[in-house]
């Protein structure tokens, strides 16, 4: 039963519960008109303590497409936080007005703190470099919808594997499914941390810095951005940001049915010429993100189209 629950990290939900959400998301994709009013009279509190474009728009679009309404703020300066209000007081107050809350916060663990003090479901929309569970749900739904199954895949993760929060969450989430192999493609300076590898079986992954050699093995290629803000030295950033630029040439040995994913925004790590390749699904992925959030909101509110 997902009604009334919080989503703070992907492991909060069992595989069966995740599947429930994905099944509903796929039904919404098939028949979006059936869901236009399921959240009529419901209000989403959108608490964005730091700027976000895609995640906030995606949540707001999701609620509006279900017939619900949205109130909230998109930066801490325009809220009572600027007056020094605590997170627990804010969520208790927001809970008086709304039915469900979504929170993005720069401090790690802030949504968990909110959930402990909240009578309404709280969804973590990203807390610092810690968790971003709805991005993981987005990635899983994209794989399920386009590859028909979440098991039996070889997934290449490429770029900044050291600091990439989405990569860490995705590896943890996918490792719960059967027969998944990971290929970690990164420059030596941005290798995946040991604590992530320690949770995997030895024969379930290999590491390489050569994307062209690895690409023919892959069913899924997950590209990430090298983030400027992670580097103290601008020269180091400039050198590494161009480590892996995916273009048509590098894709020539890839499988015909491989999919190319990216959490967006991209800088230059995927050349725009790749956008026209049928294997490029990163904009579809953003759309799946909205559908999975629609399904998540419905499940946590306990509403369905027959109610």
């Amino acid at each position: 039963m997902l009604k009334g629950r919080h989503l703070i990290e992907p492991k909060d939900f069992s595989l069966e519960e995740l599947d429930e959400i994905f099944t509903l998301a796929e039904e919404i994709i098939e028949n979006p008109r059936d869901y236009l009013e399921v959240c009529k009279g419901k209000l989403l509190g959108s608490l964005f303590y730091e700027p976000s474009t895609r995640t906030r728009f995606s949540f707001e679009a999701a609620m509006l497409r279900l017939g619900g309404q949205v109130v909230g703020f998109s930066e801490a300066g325009s809220s009572s936080v600027s007056k020094g209000e605590s997170i627990s007081d804010t969520i208790k107050t927001v809970g008086c007005y709304t039915d469900i809350a979504v929170m993005r916060h720069p401090k790690e663990g802030a949504p968990k703190l909110a959930s402990k003090n909240s009578d309404i479901p709280v969804i973590n929309a990203g807390d610092g470099g810690h968790q971003h569970p709805t991005q993981t749900l987005t990635d899983l739904l994209t794989i399920k919808a386009l590859k028909k199954d979440l098991s039996n895949h070889t997934i290449g993760l490429c770029g900044d594997l050291m600091f990439g929060r989405t990569v860490h969450s995705l590896v943890k989430a996918m490792s719960r499914y059967e027969n998944i192999k990971f290929v970690f493609i990164s420059p030596p300076e941005l290798k995946i941390p040991d604590y992530i590898k320690n949770e995997l079986k030895d024969n379930n992954y290999y590491e390489t810095s050569d994307i062209e050699a690895a690409i023919e093995d892959l069913d899924i290629l997950y590209m990430t951005r090298v983030q400027r803000e992670r580097f103290l030295n601008e020269e180091e950033y400039l050198r590494l940001k161009n480590s892996y630029i995916l273009n048509n040439e590098k894709l020539k040995n890839a499988k015909e049915d491989m999919i190319i994913m990216h959490p967006l925004p991209r800088v230059n790590e995927i050349h725009t010429e790749v956008d026209n390749d049928k294997r490029a699904v990163y904009f579809k992925q953003a759309r799946y993100g909205m559908f999975v959030r629609m399904a998540l909101i419905m499940k946590l509110l306990g509403v369905d189209k027959n109610a």
Partner: peptide, 9 residues
Amino acid sequence: RCVTTVENI
């Protein structure tokens, strides 16, 4: 970066 460093928990 932990929330416990800024909130009184």
